[in-house]
């Protein structure tokens, strides 16, 4: 199995390269020619490939000429589309970093290009591979939780622009925290709610966090109403302190008619304190969600396990985000387009 990681713009590229290089039977190369928009000091291109210890293709032409069975697109959100279309042209399965695109128009074009070419388009939502989410899903799917009434979720992280500046540059990212962090929980609910679809979105945002540094929204609350009446309120803020020893997390509370469920996708950790560094420390011992996602993408889902999100699902979550931006702008609830 030959896998190429296209662009190292996203912080996840290095992690994917490492995981793929450790998978038996997988050959991996990286390619990162478009470094024009990187900030000084961001480790990109061959330097990153060398650091991780994987082969490097200086151009995308060479990466595709190598004959990959699958590619993973890790470019800036606004640059997903050309790489996905290129993969479609070459007939190569593609896993695209989330969100699917920076605009619904791009997302639609990508889904259509892959459909027309008969190429599989998947979107990188690793949290759906969390065992905690599997437990939530099992309780809901079996009917034990009863009808789901409401969900409240938080996907808070620290502002990611120090690792990669483009995250807070709207022409590349499509926005700020609302674009970056609404989609993970929206994707879980897209899966959890089955046929129920998001119909209306209300959102309020501000940029009171890091106001002196970036112009995009850094905090936001998003309420999504689904076609079965369920309501989900999501805190998508970059409100996790940057000097904190962890990156943030993802929590969900599901209120059903017959059970109340809570999950924390990233708190399988031993917590402690590091005296030498004078800060808190943690030892994650939970499942590696990225690894589970990559395995499902490359080899298909495990027996009874969840599959990667497809392009249509990625497009639905992107439409929720687009409606959220329209609502934050108008101050009123907006129908999901």
């Amino acid at each position: 199995m030959k896998v190429a990681v296209l662009s190292f713009a996203h912080v996840h590229a290095a992690g994917y390269l490492r995981l793929l290089s450790r998978m038996p039977g997988v050959e991996v190369i990286g390619s990162d020619p478009d470094q024009d928009l990187a900030a000084p000091g961001e480790v990109r291109g061959r330097a990153l490939a060398d650091e991780v210890g994987v082969a490097y293709a200086p151009t995308y032409e060479e990466a595709f000429a190598w004959g990959p069975d699958a590619v993973i697109v890790c470019s800036e959100n606004a640059r997903h589309r050309p790489l996905v279309e290129r993969a479609a042209l070459h007939g190569v399965s593609v896993l695209c970093e989330k969100p699917l695109a920076a605009s619904v128009a791009d997302g639609e074009a990508m889904v259509e290009a892959c459909r027309a070419a008969g190429v599989r388009l998947a979107v990188a939502f690793p949290v759906r591979f969390s065992p905690a989410y599997a437990a939530v899903k099992a309780a809901v799917a079996s009917g034990e939780a009863g009808r789901v009434l409401a969900v409240s979720g938080a996907n808070n992280g620290s502002m990611p622009n120090r690792a990669r500046r483009w995250f807070a540059e709207p022409e590349l990212s499509g926005g700020g925290a609302l674009m970056d962090h609404t989609v993970h929980i929206a994707d879980l609910l897209d899966d959890l709610f089955g046929d129920a679809r998001p119909v209306e979105v209300y959102a309020q945002t501000n940029n009171l966090l890091h106001a002196d540094e970036v112009a995009v929204e850094t905090a936001g609350l998003v309420s999504v109403t689904y076609s079965d009446g369920a309501v989900a309120t999501i805190d998508c803020s970059w409100s996790h302190p940057r000097s904190h020893h962890s990156w943030g997390g993802l929590e969900l509370t599901v209120v059903g008619e017959r059970a109340t469920l809570e999950m924390d996708a990233f708190d399988q950790k031993v917590h402690g304190f590091d005296e030498r560094r004078g800060r808190g420390t943690e030892l994650p011992f939970g499942a590696d969600l990225d690894e589970l996602m990559l395995r499902a993408f490359l080899y298909g889902p495990e027996e009874g396990g969840i599959d990667v999100a497809d392009g249509e699902g990625g497009l639905r979550t992107l439409r929720v985000v687009a409606a959220a931006y329209a609502s934050a702008e108008s101050g009123a609830p907006v129908a999901v387009g």
Partner: peptide, 19 residues
Amino acid sequence: VVTATAVLTHASGAVSHIN
């Protein structure tokens, strides 16, 4: 069971989620 969710916008621009 009855549950409610409210999003408040403060004059300062801050936002509050009450559940």
